[in-house]
Amino acid sequence: MNPTQLAAQADELAKHAADLAALAHQMVAGAAPVAEAVQPFVFLFAIFLMACFVGYYVVWNVTPALHSPLMSVTNAISSVIVVGAMLATGLALSGWAVGFGVVAVTLASVNIFGGFVITQRMLQMFKKK
């Protein structure tokens, strides 16, 4: 092959490549709106709704005799709010946040310990006699 032919071929290939690149660019441009990131809120909200359904079915299965322990244990677990309080305290980004955080950690801890202990006390009484 002589150099002129080679050059012409290379030229053509380059043109092809450019065309392909243009096409790819077009496709990406077309796809971009589709692939736009979904707001994290939507995921959290989906999880929230699922949890509502799970709660609905699980709680209907709770035997009425144990409705009191159900209340005290839900009390204990809802105090998982302590994680937010701990972050506010531990990351120490503002004096006020630390203050509010410590108070919330203390309040939630009363509930966590108190809730689980009183639930356990109640459930112990429901042992088979």
């Binding site: 009390n75 105090s79 709010i81 309080a85 506010a88 990351l91 980004l93 946040a97 955080g101 919330a104």
Partner: peptide, 20 residues
């Protein structure tokens, strides 16, 4: 107490939003 803790965590989040 759960209610009050929620109020305080809310207040903390308002004061240190970077933490969250």
């Amino acid at each position: 107490l759960v209610g009050l803790a929620a109020v305080f965590v809310g207040a903390a989040a308002l004061n240190a939003p970077e933490a969250f």
